[in-house]
Amino acid sequence: MSDPFSLNGGSAVAMVGKDCVAIASDLRLGNQSLGLSNNFEKIFQFGDKTFLGLTGLATDVITLSEVFRFKHNLYKLREERDIEPKTLANLVSSTLYEKRFGPYFVSPLVAGLDPKSNVPFICGFDSIGCIDFAKDFIVGGTASDQLYGLCESLYEPSLEPEDLFETISQVLLNAVDRDALSGWGAVVYIVTKDKIIRRVLKTRQD
């Protein structure tokens, strides 16, 4: 009941397609069963083709998104280039592990394409930074069990961007409908080598 991971609710999922990746989250922010906002995005962009999804305790979601915005800005100034998804993943991991004995209550996801080779990359983390490298899909948040189930049944490898959009949208929408703490709208990003597609989805409002 007083689990900080499920106080505010929220879910996210990322998937790999053919030369593309997708990452999506719901838009709900709540206080236990009370819904507070249907406009709380949990996906943040770093550079052209790299995204970070942050679900869990909302205060930590905001804090960490600012921490990584700051670290990414310094990185760009130092290196004079965009950060690679795998480098961001390692940065997330070491940042979370710094708080090993008083962690941020979040389940982050990283999804993106390598800035040069456009090779897809996705991964997830536990709250102390252990990286879960995934080839196909990765889930996080209060509907993670439902997301796993839907990914296992709907996902197939090497989907084209539009098919990947359909798959990830159905996975997210049907998962959050079976979770009282997630939903209230959704946002989906499809990352391809020459464009980013962002779509806001309408969902059940109960």
Binding site: E79, T87, S93
Partner: peptide
Amino acid sequence: KRIYNEYPPVKI
């Protein structure tokens, strides 16, 4: 390396 898990570029 302990932050990014890769060695620094020459310039850095």
